[in-house]
């Protein structure tokens, strides 16, 4: 589905990614685990096209996309939920969903725009109730659901989520994760970055552990769990 080979990204002099290679299987949830500054966000931004890598290649469904602009990758089915709950907070919930839909769907698809937005309201009634409120007035959890809904409206095949649990109450995290599993069941491939390793392994099929721009561990759910059991995982965080 997605293949990154030997990615290097430098922010000026800071080496954010130093030769990262990963392979994503379709219809999987892959967790990217690591501490602050390990390169998780950079990696997701490179996949979505917000950051152009200094070196390395990205193949999406066997097609090289690393030189394509964001807008084009969006059209090919890659949706990116950025960290820090980015939303158009000065516009209404409904307008956010409209914006999430309009510029990423084909003309054909736009005929059903309102129907598809209403499906979001059916899935999350709280968003329907608050559809004319400004998005900035929603609670953190509601905002996160709205953001993921906006991403879903483009009917993505690959969904990237950057720390979706950050700052959310545990019960809300459960809700978000439950929705991700639902999406996986619908055939969406998901990559989720998490600092909280214990959270990520609850839903991940596979995981990569990043430390200062390098992959220091990878494996399936059993491998990740055994890493958690041993001291290996905390040494990634605490040295």
């Amino acid at each position: 589905m997605l293949k990154l080979t030997d990615l290097h990204v430098n922010y000026g002099p800071i080496k954010a990614l130093q030769g990262v290679s990963i392979d994503i299987e379709p219809n999987n949830i892959t967790a990217i685990i690591g501490a602050n500054g390990s390169g998780k966000s950079t990696m997701l931004s490179v996949i979505s096209g917000l950051i152009i890598p200094d070196q390395g290649e990205i193949y999406y469904k066997d097609i090289a996309i690393h030189t394509k602009p964001v807008e084009e990758r969006v059209k090919q089915g890659i949706a990116h939920v950025m960290e820090g709950r980015r939303l158009f907070k000065d516009q209404s919930v409904h307008d956010n969903l409209l914006l999430g839909f309009y510029f990423r769907n084909s003309k054909e698809n736009k005929k059903n725009m309102l129907k598809q937005i209403n499906e979001v309201y059916d899935r999350f009634p709280i968003l329907g109730e608050k559809k004319s409120q400004l998005a900035g007035t929603l609670s953190g959890g509601q905002q996160q659901l709205l953001i993921i809904s906006m991403a879903i409206l483009s009917k993505p095949q690959l969904l990237l989520l950057d720390e979706p649990s950050l700052g959310l109450a545990p019960i809300v995290v459960d809700q978000v994760y439950q929705y991700l599993e639902e999406l996986k069941a619908q055939g969406v491939t998901i990559i989720v970055s998490e600092q909280m390793a214990a959270l990520a392994i609850r839903i991940a099929d596979y995981g990569y552990v990043l430390e200062r721009g390098k992959v220091v561990g990878k494996g399936d759910i059993h491998y990740l769990k055994s890493m958690m059991e041993s001291d290996e995982m905390s040494s990634v965080y605490f040295g």
């Binding site: 501490a35 998490e194 909280m196 214990a198 990520a200 059991e229 905390s234 605490f238």
Partner: peptide
């Protein structure tokens, strides 16, 4: 002491190991 502290580990990893 920090590395052993349950709350600290939870803050970073989500839950303390062996939890």
């Amino acid at each position: 002491g920090m590395k052993q502290n349950k709350q600290v580990i939870e803050a970073y990893l989500g839950v303390a190991k062996h939890a």
